[in-house]
Design a protein around this nucleic acid. Structure first.
Lengths: 236, 236
DNA sequence: CCGCTTCTTTGCGTTCGCTCAACGAGCCGG
DNA sequence: CCGGCTCGTTGAGCGAACGCAAAGAAGCGG
């Protein structure tokens, strides 16, 4: 990651984020003034699993993949960070280190604060505390959703759900469908759904033959979201 | 659940909880004064999935199981609530309803606050906000751990992990082992690990034959935690 | 333009864990 | 004390998904 540069971050970029809702404009200005802007080139990391947590971040532009590696070397993708998301606030979880690795899927820009700012920032911005609580709460909700899926659904449904979520969170209209707007491999999707790239490849091939999606090297376009949704949720 | 009774809750019961660490004693006293104490008999619920979230709670005594039911009727156990745990703070997650059902595994006592207190309580107790953030953070960490396990480990390892966690969180020394201190069925364990009661039963039978655990109707005692840990983590 | 690397596809055999089924055992209420 | 309910055990068969293997694309760098 490129060294921090104290750049004035345009408040208008962030004032509408849920995280900063109902905050005093002056407080927000003060907060952003303490942040450093960093550029992260595709493939580079913002922080790595196990490293001491020295800063927390807000993604301003781009897309990150956060992965964890198990003791026996298997990789799991915990989440995709989208613009406007807070990430790497390990200290808020009372952890001394980062639990995962954040790697830029495309060239990205992040705002970073020294971790030591966290407590004072939260204590002097009670509104931010409540919003941060909601943000983590939503994260928890997502994790529970994935747990529920992993516990009860077969692989095809899980992959369908994952693809639909990606299309919703990171979709860009393109021709006849919704293209996932950053490079993503079958391996990535496998790591998000707890399966193997082989199974994902087979499923996507099958769907492509039926005209539900269009694949390609590191890319994926959803053509028939309705049909996918029916695979993800046969009942509703 | 028995109707709330405004009972003075002994501060000494809660002052040492991580959630209330570094809080002013007066603030804590004020906070607890607003709480109502409820008794919940075994098998009764504190709240049910989908019900409007009108209150948030702290478990003072006993043990709760929090489950979610999927649209197609499958049940998943999201967590066990232990004494000292905050639960049911759906509003903090910006949710209008409870995402799961909290049912008493044994006769329990909970402290409850009207949900409308949440924002004011957090805003006037910044220290509590930080602690609550950490509490949810740990919850998120646990969820991620389970996701990692579900993604990469076979059933036997997952069940071993779950049993060890239960023994640690809710174990009581008894004779030659550590007895899990509340009634738990094979079905429960299956719902915690994403498998079926049949598989759990087979595994526990196998372990019992090897002298690692002792089973029984709604009970489970860990005899050889070391051997179980080796099943859970063959490497380390 | 060529060679290498990374990503993807596809076939085949295997297996883990599920489903179905039946029975056994503990506990409670009448 | 007996009947019924819930919980637990165990067997047999099956199938979804994995592991292994090999060969094709697509992109990148020299």
């Amino acid at each position: 990651m490129v060294k921090a540069r104290k750049v004035a971050i345009d408040i208008s970029l962030v004032r509408n984020l849920p995280l900063f809702r109902d905050m005093q404009p002056e407080a927000l200005t003060r907060l952003m003034a303490r942040a450093g802007a960093h550029r992260v080139a595709q493939g580079e990391t913002v922080f790595e699993q196990g490293a001491q947590a020295t800063a927390f971040y807000l993604l301003l532009h781009g897309r990150l993949k956060v992965t964890q590696v198990t003791p026996d070397g298997q990789q799991v993708m915990m989440r995709v960070v989208h613009p406007g998301d807070l990430f790497g606030f390990a200290r808020a979880l009372a952890r001394p280190d980062y639990p995962g690795t954040a790697r830029a899927a495309v060239d990205s820009i992040v705002a970073g604060w020294p971790m030591s700012d966290w407590d004072t920032v939260v204590e002097s911005n009670p509104r931010l505390a409540i919003n941060a609580l909601q943000t983590i709460g939503q994260r928890l909700d997502e994790a529970h959703t994935r747990l529920r899926e992993m516990s009860t659904q077969e692989v095809e449904r899980r992959v369908a759900h994952a693809v639909l979520r990606l299309a919703e969170k990171a979709g860009r209209i393109e021709g006849g469908g919704t293209r996932i707007d950053f490079p993503i491999t079958r391996q990535d999707i496998a790591e998000m759904t707890g399966t193997t790239l082989h199974t994902v490849s087979r499923l996507l091939s099958g769907w492509e033959a039926r005209g539900l999606v269009e694949g390609g090297r590191q890319k994926l376009t959803v053509i028939d979201a309705g049909a996918l949704a029916r695979i993800a949720d046969p009942a509703g």
